[in-house]
Amino acid sequence: MADAKKIAKLLLKKYPDPEIALNFSNPLELLVATILSARCTDARVNEITKNLFKKYRKAEDYARADIKSFEAEIKPAGFYKNKAKMIIECCKKIVRDYNGKVPDTLEALTTLPGVGRKTANAVLGSAFGKQAIAVDTHVLRVSNRLGIARSGNPDIIEQELVRQVPGSKLTAFNLALILHGRETCTALKPKCHGCVLYKECEWQEKI
């Protein structure tokens, strides 16, 4: 298996201060944006939330939202009926069980409707400043190509990366891995030539 610690060091040298691409100013905004981002580009989500976050400022606002109106407001994100239902139900539970505040533990976050480990870890890492690995499509693809994970299961990949990468670097490494997947190790026509991880990468199809 490839040397994850060395890969993390090289990647964080290239991306010393990686940040999540979704715009937010508090945990609730990131939670909503992350739910909206499923099968949708971050750029489009940011366009939607530009106005959405002005109207909905608290969990109570989402909890009281008219479902049809809310669906129309988030329609460009795709799968808007399902996402609207999840966000409203999620915020109802936050109001009911957590006094209107987004909880800051994985266990509590994953009890919220529409919130799995990926969304929960994204919120923990970028909104609460905790160390976490959120396995999205980029992390899944890149970690397998590099050889620091050998699975198509996001939960197993999360465990593998947590086991190998220094605990204090997990969130930064996670975000850097996503950036690397978007900019260099793309799904189609990856830019292997000149990649800072070329020597460490175990992908047999690298060029």
Rank of each mutant, 00 (worst) to 15 (best):
A176V: 00
K189N: 13
A176R: 00
C195Q: 01
L175Q: 07
E183W: 07
L197H: 01
R182C: 06
L175N: 05
E160P: 02
L175Y: 07
Y198T: 13
K191V: 11
K191L: 13
P190E: 04
V196N: 02
T171V: 04
P166R: 07
G194C: 05
F173T: 00
T186G: 12
L170E: 00
I178R: 01
V162A: 05
H193C: 13
P166N: 06
L179E: 06
H180W: 10
P190H: 04
Y198A: 11
L161R: 04
C195I: 03
P166S: 05
Q164D: 10
L175E: 05
G181Y: 05
G181D: 06
V162I: 15
A176L: 01
I178T: 02
C192F: 13
N174E: 02
L197Y: 03
A172I: 06
T186L: 09
K191Y: 10
E183P: 10
V196L: 05
L188A: 14
K199W: 06
V165W: 07
G167F: 13
H193D: 13
L197D: 01
Q164A: 12
N174M: 01
V162D: 02
T186R: 14
L161I: 10
P190I: 08
C195W: 02
Q159T: 14
E160F: 03
V165M: 03
E183M: 08
T171G: 02
K191F: 11
Y198V: 14
E183C: 08
A172N: 12
Q164P: 10
A187Y: 10
F173G: 00
F173K: 00
A172Y: 09
C192S: 10
H180L: 12
E160A: 08
I178A: 01
L177E: 04
H180P: 07
C185S: 10
C185M: 10
L177H: 07
L188Y: 12
K189M: 08
K191R: 14
Q159N: 14
Y198F: 15
G194T: 05
A172D: 13
T184P: 11
E160K: 06
I178S: 01
R182E: 09
S168L: 13
L197S: 03
E183Q: 12
L175C: 04
N174I: 02
S168R: 15
V162F: 11
G181E: 04
K169P: 01
Y198H: 13
A172G: 10
R182H: 09
Q159H: 14
A187C: 11
V162R: 09
H193V: 15
L170Y: 05
S168A: 15
E183G: 09
R163E: 15
Q159P: 08
L170C: 01
Y198Q: 11
K169S: 08
L170D: 00
L177C: 06
P190Y: 06
Y198I: 14
I178V: 11
L188G: 12
G167I: 14
K169D: 07
E160Y: 03
L161Q: 04
R163I: 07
H193R: 15
C185H: 09
H180T: 08
H193M: 14
R163D: 14
G194P: 03
A172L: 09
T184E: 11
Q164M: 10
L197I: 05
L177G: 04
R163G: 09
V196E: 05
F173Y: 02
C195K: 00
E160T: 04
A187V: 12
P190L: 07
T171Y: 03
Y198L: 13
C185I: 09
G194I: 05
L188R: 15
L197K: 00
A187D: 13
P166Y: 04
